[in-house]
Design a protein around this nucleic acid. Structure first.
Lengths: 148, 148
DNA sequence: GCTTGACCTCAAGTGGACTTGAATTCGTAG
DNA sequence: CTACGAATTCAAGTCCACTTGAGGTCAAGC
């Protein structure tokens, strides 16, 4: 049998079943049918979920992604949109790299206050410029975390 | 007069006044006093806000930051914690860089489906590994954005 | 001295992304 | 054939980071 049940998909992707059901309701994935009540997924759902994960890390909202998938079979994902997203991501990366350097420096800098350190000053300026909202914090993934 | 009123701070940081009041309530910033009802901020609040912005982009939650500031004057921000954060950020950056390459490639790739392209396949694998939760989407900053 | 408009407070609302819980239905092992 | 555990639905709840709105205050300009 090449069908995967929800637990199997959860196991292979690390996403909790609740999330998979949620994604299905949002139109991000589809099940091929049911075995009794139970959803059965085709193996391609794994690829699709990887794509969702990818899109999310690139900053797409779930609704954006659902849109891309719905229209995306034929009308092709807008190349300009992709390029724009890549550029935006590039700016984000540069900023994060600066932040990373600042953190590393701060973790070893002997200055009494980071605020007095010229390196840190520069970091602050970089971090403040073209900020991107990177909402909440990273959280424990895998197996139904207690909260959030 | 070296005091800044909330509008001035808002102007200089790009953060809406509501956010500044919110941050004050959270203990992320403090006003030096009032002029009548109005908060007056010292110029150092700008630096502090830059630090908050920085922390947020590094993935700290507001509460974490408030914690750092509270205890942070003396006990020194934990160096190990900073280093760990830097490492985490580094992984995030690598992943994002891979995603960026994938997006760029996808925006020019003539393949009928990105999924058939080996480059894209690789990207999917990279993006799927060590995922970090990067919640909602980037949003327009500056001057009281309509939503979110 | 009165108006005006920026600022104030406090409670409630919003949006995104999920999670949780109660009540129910099955497939399968014994 | 029955009991059990895993899946199901659907509504409601949670978290975070803010925003909005109603109702009130006050400093400054005319």
């Amino acid at each position: 049998m090449k069908w995967l049940d929800i637990a199997e998909v959860a196991r292979r992707t690390g996403l909790p079943p609740s999330t998979l059901r949620f994604y299905e309701a949002k139109g991000l994935i589809t099940s091929v049918g049911r075995h009794g009540l139970r959803r059965m997924f085709g193996p391609d759902v794994l690829e699709r979920l990887a794509l969702v994960t990818l899109g999310r890390s690139a900053g797409f909202a779930l609704d954006d992604l659902a849109g891309l998938f719905k229209s995306g079979g034929k009308p092709r994902i807008d190349r300009e949109q992709l390029a724009a997203k890549a550029d935006e991501l590039d700016r984000t990366i540069r900023r994060l790299a600066a932040v990373r350097e600042g953190l590393r420096h701060a973790s070893t800098c002997p200055a009494p206050s980071h605020l007095e350190c010229p390196r840190f000053q520069r970091l602050l300026r970089v971090a403040t410029a073209n900020q991107v909202r990177h909402p909440t914090k990273a959280s424990p993934r895998r197996k139904t975390p207690p909260r959030q």
